[in-house]
Amino acid sequence: PPKQPGVGEHPLQFNYTLWYSRRSPGKQNMSQSYDQNLKKVGTFASVEQFWNHYCHIARPCELSGHSDFHMFKDGIRPMWEDDANKLGGKWIIRLKKGLASRCWENIILAMLGEQFMVGEEICGAVISIRYQEDILSLWNRTSNDQQTTSRIRDTLRRVLNLPPNTIMEYKTHNDSLKDNSS
């Protein structure tokens, strides 16, 4: 059964699941091994349940190697093949080292608090820790809905409070699949 808020807790509009993945050096980056590397950290239905998980896990900046946190609506796996994602896409923001923890917190709080105002469009967010830079992405259901994707971009700019020259790139999951980049 879906998780429920506890007595006196503040319910979320949607339940969310937090996932963690880490690529072992030397292994092939195939879809199957990606799926096998995904570890569920927990699911939460209230603001308080979220903090109870969040306060006990490492911050993105503390992770080493090739690691990702994924926070998706409960029932959506953080993979492009999921029904909710297959016609979707993502905004991609490349971050200088040192910004990942703050930006990740800002993006997930905006998601939990329903700050994007795009109905059911948001699927989840990912922070990818890499060697040279970190990559933040926000996934939505419908890549060809330009009004929605523009609205998401504008909210992202506001909640992330990034320098004005930060480049934001939108990519459909279909294109990512074709160029095998993510």
Partner: peptide, 21 residues
Amino acid sequence: GTRIIYDRAFLMQCRNSPLTK
């Protein structure tokens, strides 16, 4: 329908609530 919306300040406040262990 009605949406459950929380701003950042409110969510941060809940972090310090007795319900958050």
